[in-house]
Design a protein around this nucleic acid. Structure first.
Length: 426
RNA sequence: GUGGGCGUAGCUCAGUCGGUUAGAGCGCCAGGUUGUGGCCCUGGAGGUCGCCGGUUCGAAUCCGGUCGCUCACCCCA
């Protein structure tokens, strides 16, 4: 038994696990690049106030927070958006809009671990700041969906459920929910689908203070799951027609990007975070086996709250834990074995200086090269080459050196040929 | 915070109506094979059976406690 283990909810990344992590992050970076996003990062430790300001005191219970030696209340970042808002807010005046940034921070939260939830994870954050047009909303969702496509997940595997808090606000007000009870109502509605309807009804009544008839009205909203139905029922309500029209454009944009099959309208999606103000979405596996893969939306007021700069913004977070589980479950992780371009086998110790010169030359040309670090039998060296995934083996022995050549073996086919030594050495 | 399940080799697990020295497969190391990998054969290293205590002539096995992992609930960025 080892004397120490990693802390609960924290992962060791042995090479096999690190290869998965690197693959996932590689796809994230590639898709961000394709959409023209720039990478940034911030401090993993931030002032505790940065999170309390936005989400309330109770969030402290899920934070890794402590007082530093200078007496500051600090916290390990539980999410990236406040840091982003702080950074952009500080320099917003001089930055060309819209700002398209992404980051892959490691985030922390102190919670009981369970499937898909650890105490740390890496989360791909993609955000657009300084753009009000609904095309920005579609663009952000497209980035998330395109990444999932590149991982090999199609519209039969995953679905983005989309809604808009502005629309829901109009509908809830119409149903009779008091304006000052909207945040509480959002919090309860966010649970729909995760708990029984009777319980949600009870909470709306007892915790939000809605009359039973109002609760019925609220549930009436969620019986409509498409534009036509919503429009028929509520088009006459103040503002609803405009909100529906904007959401329809959102869907049209995604359709034009070839992503229409991934997206459905779902008025019950509100997201747990308090700061969302417009479109909101969550991406799930269609089978419903896993937690949400990705969630995001528009938060037009957060920058003003954090930095005093008024800048519309939106974005999403996609974690590596749930995504990794789904990719493993669907067998979509590519082979991630170690590999080498060359392995150099020597017959005797006298060839080792030549071996090192050859390796230097090959490495300078960009190849990965390895060899035994101690004298060893030829058979053993070949075993080592095979185990390390060498594509080619170069054999250096007295016969070859005397003839001024080396043997080059293609490990996949077993084909061997002799090549002049001066093609391998400076 | 609540409840269920599980802790035996690096990994996956067997072994538990208490009974010599705790096993297998895979992996690892080495040899068979100082000039050619995968397959095969042989050998080896590697365990305080999670920990503490109790019952007993005797505990991996039974009992109590504890820690850890895990699943679900709660919560959820």
């Amino acid at each position: 038994m080892p004397a120490f283990n990693s802390l609960p909810g924290f992962r060791d990344f042995y090479p096999a696990e690190f290869a998965v992590r690197a693959y996932i992050m590689g796809v994230w970076r590639e898709v961000a690049r394709r959409y023209g996003f720039e990478e940034y990062d911030g401090p993993p430790l931030e002032p505790l106030e940065l999170y309390i300001e936005k989400s309330g005191e109770e969030i402290v219970h899920q934070l890794y927070n402590f007082e530093d030696k200078g007496g500051r209340a600090v916290a390990l970042r539980p999410e990236m958006t406040p840091t982003l808002a702080r950074m952009v807010g500080a320099r917003a005046a001089g930055m060309r809009k819209p700002i398209r940034w992404f980051s892959i921070p490691q985030l922390f939260r102190y919670e009981r671990t369970q499937r898909g939830r650890l105490r740390e994870h890496f989360q791909w954050n993609v955000d657009i700041l300084g753009e009000e047009d609904i095309l920005a909303d579609a663009e952000v969702l497209a980035v998330a969906l395109d990444a999932l496509r590149l991982f090999g997940l199609g519209p039969n595997d995953v679905v983005a459920r989309v809604s808009d808090r502005r629309l829901l606000e109009r509908l809830l007000l119409h149903a009779g929910v008091p304006a000052d009870q909207l945040p509480a109502a959002y919090a309860v509605i966010d649970k729909l689908g995760r708990e029984e309807e009777a319980r949600t009804r009870e909470k709306l009544h007892k915790e939000v203070g809605l009359a039973p008839t109002t609760v019925d009205e609220v549930f009436g909203i969620f019986e409509h799951r498409d534009f036509e139905s919503l429009a028929r029922a509520y088009a006459g309500v103040q503002g609803v027609a405009d909100e529906l029209a904007r959401l329809e454009r959102y869907f049209e944009h995604l359709d034009a990007m070839g992503l229409g099959d991934f997206v459905v309208l779902d008025p019950t999606i509100v997201r747990g975070l308090a700061y969302y103000t417009g479109t909101v979405f969550e991406i799930f596996d269609r089978a419903g086996e896993f937690r949400a893969i990705c969630g995001g939306g528009r938060y037009d007021n957060l920058l003003r709250a954090v930095s005093g700069v008024d800048l519309p913004a939106l974005g999403f977070g996609m974690g590596d834990v749930v995504l990794g589980e789904i990719l493993a479950d669907r067998k979509l992780l590519p082979p991630l074995e170690p590999r080498l371009d060359y392995y150099i086998v020597t017959i005797g110790e006298s060839e080792r200086p030549l071996m090192l010169r050859v390796a230097k030359r090959l490495r300078e040309a960009g190849n990965s090269v390895a060899y035994s670090l101690h004298p060893s039998g030829v058979g053993r060296q070949f075993k080592d080459a095979d185990a390390r995934g060498a594509e080619r083996v170069i054999v250096l022995g007295p016969d070859e050196v005397a003839a001024g050549v080396a043997v080059l073996r293609e490990m996949r086919t077993g084909e061997e040929r002799r090549i002049p030594l001066d093609e391998l050495t400076p």
